[in-house]
Each structure stands twice: as C-alpha cells, then as structure tokens.
Computed example of a mutant assay.
Amino acid sequence: MPRVDNEAFYRSALIAHGETAEGVHWNSTESQEVRFRVLRSLLPDDLSDLTLVDAGCGFGDLYCYLDRHGERPERYIGLDVMEPMVQAARKRTGCEIRVCDIIGDRLPSADYYLCSGAMNTLTREETEAFIRKCYEASTHGFLFNLLKGWNTSPIYNLYLPREIKRLGLDMEAEVEIREGYLSGDFSVAFIKPRPDAS
C-alpha cells in the first residue's frame, strides 16, 4: 500500500506552486540546488562523454542546474510518471524526457542514473525496487538522495544511512554516503566495482 497517492500529492503541488522547486515538494530552490550540488560531486569530473538518466526528473531542474554551470552530459534522459511534468521538462530542457514508471517499466541504459527526491514518498519495498532497477540499468552506478531519520512518518520515506549502506553492500556495490549538507537529508553513490585490470 503506497504511503500517499503520488499523482494527487504532486499534482496538488504543481497546481499550487507551478514549475518551481515547491511544485515538486522541495522547501526552496536553494535546498533543491544544494542536493544537486552534492549529487554532482559524486559524478566524474567530466560529464561530456556520459549518458545520464534522471529518474523522477520532475521539471528537468537537475539538467537546468548542470547546464547553468556549463556542464552538459553527452546525453540526458529524464524519466517521470507525471505527464504534466514530462511536458514541462521537455520544453525547459530540449532533451529526451519520457513518461515512465521506474519500478514497472523497462529502463533505458545509461552510464549513471541519478534521483533527487523521487523516492521520498515510496514505501520501503518500492524504494528497494527503485534502487535495484536504476542500479541494474546503469553501467557505472546510481546516485540518489533520501530523507534521513527513523521510519515513522506517515507521508515521507525516511532511512538511516546505515540501512542504505547495508542494501548497497548486499547488491555488491561500492557505497559512498555524504551527510551534513542539509538537516535530515543524505546522498548516496552505489558504484559498480570495476573489473580487476591486472
């Protein structure tokens, strides 16, 4: 049983706030961009030859953030289940944006998958399925953020970093966790181990 009706949850914010950070349930553009900055720091220095998939892309804000900083990936694909957000993201980014249910649909392959905030209202079972699918569809890894805390909220999906680290190790990923940039938030990189070059 989902925590909330995601369609109604995001549609109401979109109606109230329009194509803004608040329209995808972030407190502000500033806090949204802090999260983007941390996710960007977990990627390689040069994005120019990479394909990035933004899972739960909303209005394409992550791409717009990278573009403003002069960092365009070779290819960017946005995925979102909400048709109005997909339409807005296509207009704002000029990139390939698809209507897609991350858990239920087939995913495109990419060097890296990223997700900022899209798992915040999922159940634990949905979150694990989402993480596993994005990780499997990537050739190098999956970078994402989650809300930090005990799993007691009726609306939001909260995790302790050690729980996510354990999941990553179970998936045989190399795990890096960043904390301390915003209260109640943490970012994660699940990176695929490189074959031994020797």
Rank of each mutant, 00 (worst) to 15 (best):
G78H: 02
L143R: 06
V38A: 00
T20Q: 00
L114E: 08
G104D: 09
E30G: 07
R90N: 05
F144V: 02
P154H: 06
I97F: 12
Y63W: 13
T93W: 06
G70H: 12
A137I: 12
Q87A: 13
L143F: 13
D46T: 10
V38I: 14
A88P: 04
G60I: 04
Y76I: 08
V53D: 01
Y63T: 04
E30C: 11
V38G: 02
T93Y: 02
P44E: 11
H140C: 14
M119E: 05
S109H: 12
E33V: 00
T139H: 13
R132F: 07
I131Y: 06
T121I: 15
I131K: 00
R35F: 01
F36P: 03
A118I: 06
E126C: 10
L42C: 11
A118P: 03
F144H: 06
V99N: 13
P154L: 09
T51C: 13
G94T: 09
L114W: 11
P44D: 09
E83M: 15
R40Q: 07
S116T: 11
A21E: 00
A55P: 06
I131G: 08
L50A: 04
P44Q: 11
M82Y: 05
H25Q: 12
V38H: 05
P73R: 04
P108V: 02
L47S: 03
E74S: 14
R68S: 15
Q87G: 07
R124V: 11
Y112F: 15
G141N: 09
S109L: 09
T139G: 04
H69I: 13
V86K: 12
L50M: 09
R98Q: 15
S48K: 11
C134V: 07
S48T: 15
T93I: 09
L122N: 12
F144C: 03
R92T: 02
R124I: 04
R35S: 03
W150F: 11
R37Y: 03
I131V: 15
Q32W: 00
E136H: 13
L143S: 07
H69P: 01
S28E: 01
E33D: 14
T29Q: 14
D105K: 09
E71R: 15
L79C: 10
M119L: 14
G104A: 13
P108K: 10
L52D: 05
G70E: 05
E83Q: 15
I102E: 06
I103Y: 09
C95L: 08
I102N: 03
L39D: 08
A118W: 05
R92G: 00
R92Y: 02
A137N: 12
L52F: 07
F36M: 01
A21T: 00
S31W: 00
G117I: 02
F130C: 07
S48G: 11
N145I: 01
D54H: 04
L66T: 01
L52V: 10
Y135P: 06
S109C: 10
V81S: 13
E19D: 10
E30P: 07
